[in-house]
Structures are given as structure tokens and as C-alpha cells.
């Protein structure tokens, strides 16, 4: 079948590209490391394989590769995958090409939570360095729930209403956020920097927590591709085909939002990935979610790792906010594809 052959060809290609981009990203920076060393350091950390690797590099090289750049590149891949997949799901569920992972207020909520943590200098004891991501996640999830229940009439949620509810909640939380920012003098810069998204605060420990959450949700989401296809044909058609429409939508919104929340909580609200990557995938392979979902996962990872490499190298030693780079790279590329596309694709 056509779909399967597209996946068989494109998935290994994209995964290979991702590995190349990731290792390239690790080689670049204030101290450059050649890529053989990069891979040998990585192999030396893996049991069984490490017996064939002779460590002949300086300790500082190992620190740079393994403790500084590796976690960051991996987090870029995880966050990029999560945002792109969440974007694809939101676009499918809401049947709206403008939907992105932040449309239902997850990012505003998370930003507000993060701003509070920065401004008040909160450090919840037993959470330690996880205070920021946990608070951001909970606030993000809370605002999604607020949007969902605002939009609910009886036990039905109309997709137009939920988008409007998202706008309302975002406006309100946006105001709260501005208030916190206006009152927080010294912390303002940190808050602004966080809101524009960055991977510079990465630690391995974040990845250990975020990766399993996002991986599990991503795998579950892949099984919903069929339902997303049917929802795209129309709500009634989906119902007549046996899809429990409101329940399926609820599950999908929860899955996508938890994923978004987890991603945003460690990296800030990085815009444009979730909007652009699924669209690029769609323009290339068509409207079938059985292709869009898996390809968006890898595409998002490549896109974000690439963007982050730009962000930290192009004006080195200064770092540009990642959100700025994603929009800078994403918007023109998207515009180009959009002009080139011959027919409606959404």
C-alpha cells in the first residue's frame, strides 16, 4: 500500500537525518569537537559497546559533549517531537489549520506559572530543581481544563466554542502574566527569556522525567491516527463509522495537552514548531494522519535541534531566544511551501 511504502522509505531517512543533525549540533560551539570524538564519547557511555572504545580525549571534552551539549540536543529533539505531534493532533481535532499546541491556553498557563516561580523565588522543598517545570506543567494543564469546561454545554463541546474559550482564557491569563511581569523588577529578564523559549536550562535529570512521559503519550497518540482521519471527514461521518466523537476528542486533547505541557515546562513556550512542522509534513505527504503523526514526530525533532544549533552558535557567545529562531526559519520556509503547493491540502 502507498502509505506503508512512504513510511518505510521516509522514516529511516528522517531518523538518519536527525542523527546527523544531532551529532553536528554537538560538534558546534565555543569549543569545537570533531564528530568521531562525539560518537566515541557517546558509545563509551553505553554498556557493552564501551569495551570497544578507548577513551583518548580530554576530560573537558567529555564534559562538553556529555554533560553540556548532549542533554541539550536530546531535549531539543524531545521537545520538538512533542510540540510537532501535539500541533498535528490539535489541527486534526479542532479541524483548524491555524491551531497550534498553544491555542487552548496551555502555554499561557505554563508561562504564568513559571513567571510566578521566578518572581516569587518559589522553591517547593521536595521538588527542588523540578519546582519550575512542575508548577509550569500544573498551571498549563489547569488552564486547559478551564478552557474545556468553559466550552462545555451539556456534555457536548463544540470545536468553534473551544477555540473561543481558548482565546478568552489566554487573554485573561495573559493579563495576569503581564501583571506579574510588571511587578517583578529584577526577575523580568529571566521571565521574558523563558517565555521566548530556550533549551539553555537543560539538565539530564529533566530528560529522564520528560522523555518517558512524552514517549508513552506519543505512542498512544499514534494509535489514534485512524480516528483523526475519520474526524477529518466530518463529525457525523465519524459517528456513523463507529467513532465516539466527543470521547475521542477529549482523549486526544488531553494527550496533546499533557505532551505540550511537559515540553513547555522544561523549555518555555517555543512557538512555530507545532504550527509549521505538521503543515510541512502535510504539504509533502498529504492529509493522512497515519503518515502525518509519525513523520511530524521526527520532523519536529530535526527542526528544533537545527533551530537550537542556530540559536546558540550564530551570534556566539550570545544566545538568541529559540522562539525567535524557529519563527525566523519556519515562517519563510512555510511561505515558500505554501506558494508552491498547487492545491488545497488541509
Amino acid at each position: 500500500m502507498r502509505n506503508r511504502s512512504i513510511l518505510i522509505i521516509s522514516l529511516p531517512l528522517l531518523i538518519a537525518t536527525l542523527l546527523v543533525v544531532m551529532s553536528l549540533s554537538i560538534t558546534l560551539g565555543s569549543a569545537s569537537v570533531d564528530w568521531q570524538t562525539v560518537w566515541r564519547v557517546i558509545f563509551s557511555k553505553i554498556t557493552v559497546i564501551n569495551q570497544w572504545v578507548e577513551p583518548d580525549w580530554a576530560d573537558t571534552t567529555e564534559t562538553i559533549v556529555w554533560d553540556l551539549r548532549m542533554p541539550r540536543v536530546i531535549q531539543g529533539a524531545i521537545v520538538g517531537s512533542a510540540l510537532a505531534l501535539a500541533g498535528a493532533i490539535y489541527q486534526g481535532v479542532l479541524r483548524n489549520p491555524l491551531a497550534d499546541p498553544f491555542i487552548l491556553g496551555v502555554s499561557s498557563g505554563a508561562s504564568f506559572g513559571a513567571a510566578l516561580v521566578f518572581a516569587l523565588g518559589w522553591q517547593i522543598m521536595w521538588l527542588g530543581q523540578f519546582t519550575l517545570p512542575v508548577v509550569a506543567f500544573l498551571f498549563g494543564f489547569g488552564s486547559l481544563m478551564l478552557v474545556y469546561f468553559l466550552a462545555r454545554v451539556g456534555n457536548k463541546v463544540r470545536m468553534e466554542t473551544i477555540i473561543l474559550a481558548g482565546v478568552v482564557v489566554q487573554a485573561f491569563i495573559g493579563a495576569c502574566l503581564s501583571l506579574v511581569m510588571a511587578l517583578a523588577n529584577e526577575q523580568l529578564q529571566t521571565i521574558v527569556f523563558w517565555m521566548m523559549g530556550s533549551l539553555s536550562l537543560t539538565e539530564w535529570s529533566y530528560n529522564y522525567v520528560v522523555f518517558p512521559i512524552i514517549a508513552i503519550i506519543a505512542i498512544i497518540s499514534l494509535f489514534f491516527a485512524r480516528e483523526l482521519n475519520m474526524l477529518s471527514l466530518g463529525e457525523e461521518i465519524a459517528h456513523h463509522s463507529g467513532v465516539s466523537v466527543s470521547r475521542t476528542r477529549f482523549y486526544l486533547l488531553i494527550l496533546a495537552s499533557v505532551m505540550t505541557g511537559a515540553a513547555v515546562s522544561v523549555s518555555g513556550a517555543i512557538g512555530f514548531v507545532g504550527l509549521v512542522v505538521p503543515h510541512i509534513v502535510r504539504l509533502i505527504v498529504g492529509a493522512d494522519y497515519r503518515l502525518i503523526l509519525p513523520l511530524s514526530i521526527i520532523g519536529g525533532a530535526i527542526f528544533l535541534v537545527g533551530a537550537d544549533t542556530f540559536a546558540r552558535t550564530i551570534l556566539a557567545p550570545r544566545e538568541i531566544p529559540l522562539g525567535v529562531v524557529t519563527a525566523f526559519l519556519g515562517a519563510p520556509f512555510f511561505a515558500y511551501l505554501l506558494r508552491r503547493a498547487k492545491r488545497e491540502y488541509f
Binding site: 482521519n229 477529518s232 471527514l233 466530518g234 457525523e236 461521518i237 456513523h240 498529504g286 492529509a287 493522512d288 492545491r343 488545497e344 491540502y345
Partner: peptide, 12 residues
């Protein structure tokens, strides 16, 4: 069920 609108003109 077969409705009057049928299937949407979706690229599938």
C-alpha cells in the same frame, strides 16, 4: 448511514 452531504472532499 448515508447522509445528503456524504463524505467531505478531503484529500484521502
Amino acid at each position: 448511514v448515508l447522509t445528503q452531504d456524504g463524505l467531505s472532499p478531503y484529500p484521502i
